[in-house]
Structure formats: C-alpha cells, structure tokens
C-alpha cells in the first residue's frame, strides 16, 4: 500500500495546478523511491516529467509499484478543499479503485477526508535520453514568466539564443519585433535573482510561446528555473524542488522546412 504525508499541502496543490492545463489523465507511478509522473500533452509537442522523491514526504511508505490513474481536473477539485498549510496524506491500497486524501489543519483540529475514483490509463512511457546540453541557463522563475508573457503579445514563437554574451529571447510578429537579453548576474545578497549561463557552445532554437507560458504556471514552486538547450533537441525547463524532487517540462522545437 501507499502512504505518503506532506507537511504542507502547498507543494502538491501547486504541482498539480502547474500541469493540469497541459495534461488531463495521467498515472502517478508510486514505488519505494517516490511518486513519479510522465505525460505528454494531447498534441504530442510537450512532455511533463515530475518526480516527488520519498524524502519529500514524512513518512513515506510504498511496498510495491502502484499506478494511480488520475483525472487531474477531478484531483484539482478535491485539492481545492485542502488549505495550503494543511498536512496532506495520500493513501492507496495495492490494487486501488480510489486514492484517499486526508487534509489536516492541526491548529483547528479539523480533518477532512476524500476518496477520488481512479481510472485505468494505458499510457505510453517515453525514454528521455541523458543529454549534455550546449547551454544551461538558470534564472528567476518570475523573470522567465514575464519574458514569455511580454513576448506572447508580439508573436506565437520565441527564439532563444544563448551565446557567451548572454541569453536573448526574441520574437517577430505582425506588429513588429521585440527582444529581451539577460546577461550573467550573480548578486551576492539576492541569490534568487541570479542569472547563470553555462555554455559549451552557442545555440539558438525556436519554440511555441503558448507552451512556454503554460510551463510558467509552475512558477510558485521555485524561485529559480533552469532552461537547458541543445541544437535540434527538445528544450528542458526545470523547476527544482527541495531534496532533488523536480517538475520538468520538455518542449519540441520548431523546425525550418
């Protein structure tokens, strides 16, 4: 059986909130290392990969592999009933029909309990190759959100170009064009505002802004976001969580004919 308790429901609420508009039905794959999720969006352009490691929970218990087939719209409805600071416990039997969720507000001695019906989801699992990326950009997640939102007003695509001078986001549309350039920036007193560019070779790729703005719904999960780029492979956008847990998005590039 699965039993996994989070000190605050916040993490799980925000993670589900971040992916629910991109993927609808997906399996939460539980085993002794934690709870993982991999799902593609309907048009097979983007892939979500989430890992909540066992260490993120206390306690965490899962003796065998359990796949929880969940409709994320339904899960969102249930999670809306959880206070951000409630403790959240997920429980399921070995071959479950339901996922049991318990929210506890310890200060108020209030306990709420929900059973969410599960479904059988036959999902294709993709192998994500280990990639040495040509460029890895770490930047404030709020800044990335602002850039994607601002450029969305200009065009439906953005070209991300990483060079030794910095990273440039540029868009060209019917009304004109725009660009934002960020240079490496490491303020000692404000680590959350760090912009770091690790570059093995210059790279430029074009992506759909519709997907990138969608990924930015994960912004509340982490102050920093990591963009990993290599020529002709999907972009990886990573929101790192405590203890090595993560929420990653992969986005296929736009390719010239």
């Amino acid at each position: 059986m699965l039993e996994a308790r989070l000190d605050t429901a916040n993490l799980f609420k925000s993670a589900v909130d971040a992916i629910k508009d991109l993927v609808q039905d997906c399996n939460f794959d539980c085993n002794d290392s934690g709870i993982a999720l991999q799902a593609m969006d309907n048009s097979h352009v983007a892939l979500v990969s989430m890992m909540l490691k066992a260490e993120a929970f206390s306690p965490f218990r899962c003796d065998r592999n359990i796949a929880l087939g969940v409709n994320l719209t339904s899960l969102t409805k249930v999670l809306r009933a959880a206070g951000r600071d409630d403790t959240l416990t997920l429980k399921a039997e070995d071959a479950p029909d339901v996922l049991n969720l318990v929210f506890e507000a310890t200060a108020q001695d209030r306990i709420s309990e929900y059973d969410l019906k599960l479904m059988d989801i036959d999902q294709e699992h993709l192998g994500i190759p280990d990639t040495e990326y040509a460029a890895t950009i770490s930047m404030p997640s709020a800044e990335f959100k602002r850039i994607t939102t601002d450029l969305m007003a200009m065009s439906e695509s953005v070209t991300i170009e990483a060079t030794k001078d910095g990273v440039k986001f540029s868009s060209t549309g019917d009304i004109g064009n725009g660009s934002i350039t960020l240079r490496q920036h490491t303020p000692v007193d404000k680590p959350n505002e760090t912009v770091e560019i690790e570059l093995s070779e210059p790279v430029a790729l074009t992506f759909s802004l519709k997907y990138l703005t969608n990924f930015c719904k994960a912004q509340p999960l982490s102050n920093q976001v990591k963009l990993c780029l290599s020529a002709e492979v999907p972009l990886m956008v990573e929101y790192g969580l405590e203890g090595g847990s993560y929420l990653r998005f992969y986005l296929a590039p736009k390719i010239g004919d």
């Binding site: 593609m40 352009v45 983007a46 892939l47 296929a252 390719i255 010239g256 004919d257």
Partner: peptide, 14 residues
C-alpha cells in the same frame, strides 16, 4: 516556414 516538431520524434518509447 517553420514547423512544430513532435516530442515523439525525439524521445522513443521505453
């Protein structure tokens, strides 16, 4: 003219 790629052409089934 640019075309949107598919994630499945990069990541194979495992």
């Amino acid at each position: 003219k640019v075309k949107q790629g598919s994630i499945m052409s990069f990541f194979g089934s495992s």
